[in-house]
Amino acid sequence: MPGTHLVENLKNLFATVDIGTALMNSFIIAIITTFLTLLIGSLAGYGFEIYRTKGKDMVFNILLLSMMIPFAAIMIPLYRFFGQVSSVSPLIGIDTLAAAILPTIITAFFIFFFRQNTKMFAKELVEAGRIDGLSELGIFFRIYLPTMKTTYAAAAIIAFMNSWNNYLWPLVVLQSPENQTIPLLISNLGAGYTPDYGVIMTAIVIATLPTAIVFFLMQRHFVAGMMGSVKG
């Protein structure tokens, strides 16, 4: 039962698998992915809403289409693509963390999310920024970004979680043990004629903690009424 054998389970876990490497890889992937996802997604979400034109609305709707196909359907062409990339530049080809990261950082999901939240953003602030002589990017970084702190906090939680738990793509694109991530490691643990459930559950607890901590830290930004005070 959990608790009584915790120390033993931990010992077995560290003895049987290289959980340190897997944690490290998952952290590298999740942190880079979260950072880039937020930056690229919010730039686009802001762009689509603030500089709204018919043409951009059309492009936005087309981008949304990319959310609708099951990933399993595009996995094989994507693998072939990275196979071809491998021959040109092995640094971002198959079996590199870069290949695990790249297709996940630009998603219609976060563009959509930021666009919908930008609808709630007081657009007078943009005009105010222009009058103050800020450049358009300046307005984005100096006014929009600090004002939308809670939106970024929510996006960070989701992006980190998605990346941390991402399974299918890392599974097919990462091969060597040095590149293993946490979900793959857990999947391996349960894969025998005689699985050790104590060890599996211990690994799962370790795997769940980082996202829970990220959530706990980020949710503190969700404080009612904070928004009104950040008028520029």
């Binding site: 640094l91 971002i92 963390l97 060597s176």
Partner: peptide, 8 residues
């Protein structure tokens, strides 16, 4: 990372 990875 890929320095290790690619050799493998």
């Amino acid at each position: 990372d890929s320095e290790e990875g690619s050799s493998d």
